[in-house]
Design a protein around this nucleic acid. Structure first.
Length: 889
RNA sequence: GGGCGAUUAGCUCAGCUGGUUAGAGCGCGCGCCUCACAUGCGCGAGGUCGGGGGUUCGAUCCCCUCAUCGCCCACCA
C-alpha cells in the first residue's frame, strides 16, 4: 500500500484499487446521524451504454455529493435503471427481427420473457460503466423501475389518482407512432420545423361554385366530415348550413361555423377531419360531425376510404390524392409552407394524430401546487431562467396520455368484467374475478408510460408506499441534476408526484446542465457518429482527466464542446493537470519522509514567528482557495471551484512555493521542518478541495501524506474550514513584489538572451517599505528563481543595463555591461513609458472631471487616485532610467 | 407566431451587484532536457468585448435596434 509513487502517473493503475477501497469502506452509504443530502440519479435506460451525456451528468452529481459528504452530510446518491418501455421494446424487437420474428409471433408472455432475459444481461452494464468515472453512488440501494417494490408504487399511484378522479379513460385525439404502434404523450411527439406544402383545394358546393380549403395533409380529406368557417366571416356566413360535395370520397358534408377558425389563414375555410386532427376533433364535437377514421394503426389507408386508396401508405396516399385533385381541376394552388411536424422521440417517425381510447391523467390539479412551489421559491432552478420554461409548461399543461400499446412495462391495473355486469375495476392487486358480479375479468392490454414509474422515483426508490425508515430519512431530497431535455418528461412530473403523494417537493434545487456537443455544436449522437466514448477517455487519460475537463469546460447552464476527432486536445487540460498534481505530489511526498510538525494545536506546532514570508503567503493563498472553492461548489459553479484549486495548485503551490522551499528542504538553509509542515498542510488542503472533481488522484496522494490513520480515506475526510487567521495581506503584497521582481529580471534576461546558466547581478532602489521588508526576507528566493549571483538593495545603478519598475515604484536594475543593446533598451523603456503615460493621461482626465469626483463613490475615486499615483511614479522612475542610459528624447 | 439565451484572443470559454492595465486553458512564436513534472519550465504575440444608437461622470456589463446562432413553447389547418 505504501509502494513508492510511480514516476509516471498511470490512472489505470490506481483507479481500480481505489474504487474497491471506497466500496469496502461503506462511505457511499449515508452515515447515520448526520443531516441528509440526497440526489436521485436520473435512471439511465436499462439498455443504455455510457456516453458523454452520462459522463457529464454523473460527474456533476458525484462532485456535489462528494463535496457534501466531506462537509459532514449523510450523503446519498441513489442510482437505478429505467425499464424504458418503448426504447427497450424497440431494441428487443430489432433483435428478434433478425431471427425473422415479430413480437406477435412470440406472443405477449414469451416476448416479455425475452425482454427480461435481455435486460438481465444488459441491465447492469450501464451502472458498471458509471463506476468507471468514480461515481460514489450507494449501490446497496440500487433500484430498477420494474422491481416488485416500484411496481407496487406504480399501482398505488394509479389507483389513488383514479380514486380522486384524476385518472380517466376516454376517446381523444392523441399522438400515435405508426412504427412503434403506440400512443405518445405530447412531450414524446417532438415538433420539428419542416418545409412542407400548403395545398389549396376547391370543394364544390352543392348549390354551385366552390369553397377553397387549405391543408398540409391532403390525404386526410378522405376523412372530412365538414368544412368550417368563422361565424363572423362575411364571405362565408351565408354558406353556413349549406352542403359541400367532398371530392374523391364522394360524400356530402356540411359547412359549419366555429370560432376556432382563423379567417386570416389560407382561404378562411377549413376542412374538418375529426378523427385525425385535435382542432378538427373539437370542432366536430361542437358541430355534431361524424368522425371517420381513415387509417390503420400502421398509417395506411383503411377500409373507410374509396377502394383505390386502401392500403396505401399515408404519404403515398397524399401523392395520389393530390394527383387526382389536380386532374379534376380542383387543385387551386400549392405553396411552400413551414410548419412543425411531430416526430416520435424514440424512432423519429412522423406521428399521426389519431382518435383512440386511452388512459389519461388530469394534470391541472397536480400542476397548480407544483407551480406554486416554484413561485414561492421552495423550488428553484439553476440556471434561473429555466424556471420560466417550467412555469410556462405548468400553466399550459395538458392531460397526460399514460397508456401505451406496448408489452414492456407496468400493465395498467384495470380489469374489465366479461361476465354480466360489465364493470371496470381498478385494483392494487391482481383480480381473478369481477368484484361486481364474480364473472370473468380481462386485464387492460396496455402498459403505462415509462415516465409514470419514473415520476415516483424520489419516493418509490425509498420504499413507498410503505413508510420505511429510508423514506422518512431521505425524502425529500436536495438537488436534481439533469439535462434540460427531460425537464417536462421527468423533473416537472416528479415535482407534481412528490407534492401529490408525499405533500412536499422532492428536491429544492434543479440544476439543469448543458449538452455535450461537437465543435460544430451538434449534439453528440450515435447516428452522427460524433460521439465520444467516456470509457475510452478514462482508459487513455483517466477518470480524473475526464471529470476535470467536463467540470472546467462548462459553466452553469452552458454546453460542453468537445472535439471527437481530437481527444488529446479535448482532454489536455484535465490530463495535464492530473500529471502536474501527480508530480507535485511526488516531490512533496518524497520530502516528507520524516514526521511532519503540525501547524497548529499540538505542543510542537510551528509557531507563527517561525514562518517565512513565503510560508505566510502560501497559507494566505490557500485560505483564499478554501473560501473561493467552497463558495463556488455551494453555488453550483463547479468550473470556478475547479479553477480556483487549479490556480492554487499550479500557479501558487507548484510554480512558486515549491520552488521557494527547495533550499530548506535540501538543508541548504535552516527551517526545513517548517517548510515541510507548511507544504504538507497546504497540499493536504488542496487535495481536499479538489477531491470532489478529481477523486482518484487526490485519494491516492492524500493517503500518502505522513501521519494518516491507517485506512483513512480522503473520500470520508472533512472539508477544510476557512480560518480567518490565515489571511495575511502583508504577506500577499510582499510576496507579490517578490514575484514581480523575479518576473522583471527574467524579462530582462529574455530580452538580451542571457543564457540561463549565466549568473548576473540585479539591484533594486527606491524601495517602498513593504518591498524592502519582502526583498530582505526573500532575497535568496529572488536570487535563485531569477538566477542571480546577488540581489543588491539600494545600490545605485552603474553603467549600462536593463531597467524595470515594480508596482510599488521600486526601481530594478540589471547591469549588462557590453551585452546591452542601448538602442533596444531605450526603445523598450520608451514603449513602457508611453503605455504608462497613456494610462496617466486617461486617469488625469477622469479625475479632472468634476462630475466623476462628485458622483462616483468616494472609495472608487480614492482607488483611481492611487492608481494614478502608482502609474505616475512608475513612469517617473523609468524616465530617470532613460536619462541614466543617455537615451535622449 | 410567441418567449428566452448567446455573440469577448485562431479554438473552447471565464469576466457572477457598471469603475480591472479585459483573463484562463488549448493552439501559436522564441529560449530552455534547471536533480517533481518536456503531459514540463521561462518569456511572448494575439482582442475596435457582433454592428449601430442611447442612458451614465464612466458601458464588455444597463436600455433600444439590427445581424447571426441556439433553446423552449405554439390546435393558422
Amino acid at each position: 500500500m505504501t509502494a513508492p509513487l510511480a514516476p509516471q502517473f498511470d490512472a489505470r493503475a490506481i483507479e481500480g484499487p481505489i474504487y474497491e477501497r471506497w466500496l469496502r469502506s461503506g462511505l457511499f452509504s449515508p452515515r447515520a446521524g448526520a443531516a441528509p443530502y440526497v440526489i436521485m440519479m436520473p435512471p439511465p435506460n436499462v439498455t443504455a451504454n455510457l456516453h458523454m451525456g452520462h459522463g457529464l451528468n454523473d460527474t456533476i452529481q458525484d462532485t456535489l455529493v462528494r463535496f457534501e459528504r466531506m462537509r459532514g452530510r449523510a450523503a446519498l446518491w441513489l442510482p437505478g435503471t429505467d425499464h424504458a418501455g418503448i426504447a427497450t421494446q424497440n431494441v428487443v424487437e430489432r433483435a428478434i427481427a433478425r431471427e425473422g420474428l415479430t413480437r406477435f409471433d412470440l406472443g405477449r408472455e414469451a416476448f416479455e420473457a425475452r425482454v427480461r432475459s435481455y435486460v438481465a444481461d444488459t441491465g447492469a452494464t450501464i451502472l458498471q460503466q458509471i463506476r468507471a468515472i468514480g461515481a460514489s453512488c450507494d449501490w446497496s440501494r440500487t433500484y430498477f423501475t420494474l422491481d416488485e417494490g416500484l411496481s407496487r408504487a406504480v399501482r398505488e399511484a394509479f389507483v389513488r389518482l383514479y380514486e380522486k378522479g384524476l385518472v380517466y379513460r376516454g376517446h381523444y385525439i392523441i399522438n400515435w407512432c405508426p412504427r412503434c404502434l403506440t400512443a405518445l404523450s405530447n412531450e414524446e411527439a417532438e415538433k420539428e420545423e419542416t418545409a412542407g406544402s400548403l395545398w389549396h383545394i376547391r370543394y364544390p358546393l352543392e348549390a354551385g361554385g366552390h369553397l377553397v380549403v387549405a391543408t398540409t395533409r391532403p390525404e386526410t380529406m378522405l376523412g372530412d366530415t365538414g368544412v368550417a368557417v368563422h361565424p363572423k366571416d362575411r364571405r362565408y356566413r351565408k354558406l353556413v348550413g349549406s352542403t359541400v360535395l367532398l371530392p374523391l370520397a364522394d360524400r356530402r358534408i356540411p359547412v359549419v361555423a366555429d370560432e376556432a377558425v382563423d379567417p386570416e389563414f389560407g382561404s378562411g375555410a377549413v376542412k374538418v377531419t375529426p378523427a385525425h386532427d385535435p382542432t378538427d376533433f373539437e370542432i366536430g364535437k361542437r358541430a355534431g360531425l361524424e368522425s371517420i377514421d381513415i387509417m390503420t394503426p400502421e398509417a395506411r389507408m383503411a377500409e373507410t376510404v374509396p377502394e383505390r386508396f386502401r392500403g396505401l401508405d399515408r404519404f403515398e396516399a397524399r401523392r395520389r390524392v393530390v394527383e387526382e385533385l389536380d386532374a379534376l381541376g380542383l387543385l387551386e394552388r400549392v405553396e411552400p409552407h413551414q410548419h412543425g411536424v411531430g416526430h416520435c422521440y424514440r424512432c423519429d417517425t412522423v406521428v399521426e394524430p389519431r382518435l383512440s381510447e386511452q388512459w389519461f391523467v388530469r394534470m391541472a390539479p397536480l400542476a397548480k401546487p407544483a407551480l406554486d412551489a416554484w413561485r414561492s421559491g421552495t423550488l428553484r432552478f439553476i440556471p434561473e431562467r429555466r424556471g420560466d420554461e417550467y412555469a410556462m409548461w405548468m400553466e399550459n399543461i395538458r392531460d397526460w396520455v399514460i397508456s401505451r400499446q406496448l408489452w414492456w412495462g407496468h400493465r395498467i391495473p384495470v380489469w374489465y368484467c366479461e361476465g354480466g355486469c360489465g364493470r371496470t375495476s381498478v385494483s392494487r392487486t391482481d383480480l381473478e374475478a369481477c368484484p361486481g358480479c364474480g364473472g370473468a375479468v380481462r386485464q387492460d392490454d396496455d402498459v403505462l408510460d415509462t415516465w409514470f414509474s419514473s415520476w415516483l422515483v424520489p419516493f418509490s426508490s425509498l420504499g413507498w408506499p410503505d413508510e420505511t425508515p429510508d423514506l422518512a430519512a431521505y425524502y425529500p431530497g436536495h438537488a436534481l441534476v439533469t439535462a434540460p431535455e427531460i425537464l417536462f418528461f421527468w423533473v416537472a412530473r416528479m415535482v407534481m408526484a412528490g407534492i401529490e403523494f408525499r405533500g412536499e417537493v422532492p428536491f429544492t434545487d434543479v440544476y439543469l446542465h448543458g449538452t455535450v456537443r461537437d465543435t460544430q455544436h451538434r449534439k453528440m449522437s450515435k447516428s452522427l457518429g460524433n460521439g465520444i466514448d467516456p470509457l475510452e477517455v478514462v482508459d487513455r487519460f483517466g477518470a480524473d482527466a475526464l471529470r476535470y475537463t467536463a467540470v472546467s469546460g462548462m459553466s452553469v447552464g452552458t454546453d460542453l464542446i468537445l472535439d471527437p476527432a481530437d481527444l488529446d486536445t479535448s482532454f489536455a487540460a484535465g490530463r495535464n493537470f492530473a500529471n502536474k498534481l501527480w508530480n507535485a505530489g511526488r516531490f512533496i511526498l518524497s520530502n516528507l519522509d520524516g514526521p511532519v510538525r503540525p501547524l497548529a494545536g499540538a505542543t510542537n506546532a510551528v509557531r507563527r514567528e517561525e514562518l517565512t514570508l513565503a510560508d505566510r503567503w502560501i497559507i494566505a493563498r490557500c485560505e483564499a482557495a478554501v473560501v473561493e472553492a467552497t463558495e463556488a461548489y455551494e453555488r453550483y459553479r463547479l468550473n470556478d471551484a475547479a479553477g480556483a484549486v487549479y490556480r492554487f495548485v499550479w500557479s501558487d503551490l507548484a510554480d512558486w512555493y515549491i520552488e521557494q522551499i527547495k533550499p530548506r528542504l535540501y538543508g541548504d538553509v535552516p527551517g526545513g521542518d517548517v517548510a515541510r509542515a507548511v507544504v504538507a498542510q497546504t497540499f493536504d488542503i488542496a487535495l481536499r478541495l479538489l477531491h470532489p472533481v478529481m477523486p482518484f488522484i487526490t485519494e491516492e496522494l492524500w493517503g500518502r501524506i505522513p501521519g494518516r490513520r491507517p485506512g483513512a480515506l480522503l473520500a470520508g475526510a472533512r472539508w477544510p474550514r476557512s480560518d480567518a487567521r490565515a489571511r495575511d495581506d502583508e504577506a500577499v503584497t510582499g510576496f507579490g513584489l517578490v514575484q514581480e521582481l523575479v518576473s522583471a529580471i527574467r524579462i530582462v534576461r529574455g530580452e538580451y538572451g542571457i543564457p540561463p546558466g549565466q549568473a548576473i547581478r540585479a539591484s533594486v532602489t527606491n524601495l517602498s517599505r513593504p518591498a524592502r521588508r519582502a526583498l530582505e526576507a526573500e532575497r535568496g528566493t529572488v536570487e535563485r528563481l531569477a538566477k542571480l549571483a546577488a540581489l543588491e538593495l539600494d545600490v545605485a545603478p552603474e553603467g549600462a543595463g536593463g531597467h524595470a519598475v515594480l508596482s510599488d515604484g521600486s526601481a530594478v536594475f540589471v547591469p549588462l555591461g557590453d551585452a546591452i543593446d542601448l538602442e533596444r533598451e531605450c526603445a523598450r523603456l520608451a514603449a513602457e513609458i508611453a503605455r504608462l503615460d497613456g494610462l496617466v493621461g486617461g486617469q488625469e482626465r477622469k479625475l479632472a472631471n468634476a462630475q466623476f469626483v462628485a458622483r462616483a463613490p468616494a472609495a472608487v475615486v480614492e482607488g483611481e487616485r492611487q492608481k494614478l499615483g502608482t502609474w505616475k511614479e512608475q513612469a517617473a522612475v523609468l524616465r530617470s532610467k532613460r536619462e541614466l542610459l543617455g537615451c535622449g528624447a
